[in-house]
Nucleic acid binder design. Sequence first.
DNA 1: CATTTTCATAGACCGCAGTCTATAATCTAT
DNA 2: ATAGATTATAGACTGCGGTCTATGAAAATG
Lengths: 199, 199
Amino acid sequence: MVTKTLRQQKALETKQRILRTALALFSAKGFDHVSVDEIVRESATSKGAFYGHFASKYDIFLEKFKEIDQFYSEFQQNLPDELPAEDKIRKLAIAQMMYLREELGRDGTRALYAYALTPSVDNYLSDTERPLYAVLESFISAGQKSGELASTASAKRLTMLLSRSMRGTLYDWAIFDGDFDLAAEIDEWLELLFTGLRV
Amino acid sequence: MVTKTLRQQKALETKQRILRTALALFSAKGFDHVSVDEIVRESATSKGAFYGHFASKYDIFLEKFKEIDQFYSEFQQNLPDELPAEDKIRKLAIAQMMYLREELGRDGTRALYAYALTPSVDNYLSDTERPLYAVLESFISAGQKSGELASTASAKRLTMLLSRSMRGTLYDWAIFDGDFDLAAEIDEWLELLFTGLRV
DNA sequence: CATTTTCATAGACCGCAGTCTATAATCTAT
DNA sequence: ATAGATTATAGACTGCGGTCTATGAAAATG
C-alpha cells in the first residue's frame, strides 16, 4: 500500500525526520543522554507527533535494532552450505556480536536489554519468531541430522539455549566495565559448550 | 561502633521504618508499582529521610538481595565435602534459582537486572568479589584438581562463564512470559554444558 | 461546494525518581 | 548554661518519559 494522500505523505516525512534526528542524537550523545523533548525540539516537531509515530523512546531504537534481521538472512545466504554445523553456529554467533558492537554499541545494547525488562512490554528479544531463531535452528537441525551434534535435546530447545548464551554474553558485556572482547568471549564460550566440561 | 547518641538512635529507627515499609509494599504490590512517595507517605517520613539513608529506590532492594550471600555460605557449609564437583555445582545452581524465585520473585529479579543495566552504577551483579564467585570457584577448582573437570580454562574463567549462564537463565526468566521452570531450565542447561554438544 | 468526519500535531499536563535548600533538633565546646 | 556547629529530616523543586485534550487542516460525503 503505497502512500496516497497528502496527509499520509506529510506524516511520513515527519516520522522520518524524527527518526533521523533521534538516531543522530543517540549516536552523538548516547541513548541515555538524549531526551524526547530534545529530539522533538531538534526535529521541530512535538510530543504529540513523536508518540503518534513511536510507542516509546525505546521503540524508535528498536526500529534500528530490527535491521539485524536483514543481516541474519544475508549471513545465511552467504555462508557455504557444506560447512560443518559447528562452524556455522560459531560464525553466526561471532558475526552477531560484531554487528551489535558496531551498530548499536554498548550503550545501545544496554538500553535495549533494559527495555526488554520493562514489565508488560512485548519486547523483541523474547520473540521466538524472529529470524535469529530460524537461522540458528536450521543450523542446529542440520547438524543433528548429519550426526555432528548431540540430539539429546530437540533443535528448538537447543536453539533457545544457544540464543540464551548469546543474551547472557551480551548482558555481561553491558554490565561489566573494562575490557570485554565480545567476539572472543562468545568464541571461548562456544568452544567450552561444544567440548563439554567433563573430564 | 555501636549506636551512641540519641540522634543516631533516631536516625536508625527512621531507616528501619522505611526499610520495613518499603519491603512490605514491594512484596504486596511489586517493585514497579510502589513509588518512593508512597513509601515515604506510608512510613510517615520524607524524601529527605529516604535519600539520606538509601542511594536509590533500588538500593533499598539490594539490601534484601544481598542476603543471598548469607545463603551461599550456609549452602557451602551444609554440603557434604565428598560430593563430586559436578553435583556440587548443580546443587548450587538449582538452590540459587529456587532462592531467588522465593525471595525476590520474578518482578524483583526483573527490577534487579534492570537496575544493573543502569549506566555508571556499581551494580552488585557485576561485583566479582561477591560470595557466589568464591563458592563457585572453590567447587570448580576442586573439580579440576581431582580431574573431574576440564582444565582447558582457568577456574576463575570457568567461574565467570558459569555465573554468566545463571545470569542468562535468570534474564530469560524475567523477559519470557508463560511457564518457565527455573530449576529445570538451569538443570537441563548444566547437563548440556557438562556433556558437550559434539557428537 | 458545503458539511461533516478524520486524524496528525501541538503542547499542557501527570506521575515518578532523584536533588536542593531550609530548618529545627541535637550535639559539642567552653 | 550558653553559643555555635552539626545533621536528620521535611518538602519544594527539577527533569524525564509518557498521556491527554484541543485544534486546524485535509479528506470524505452528498
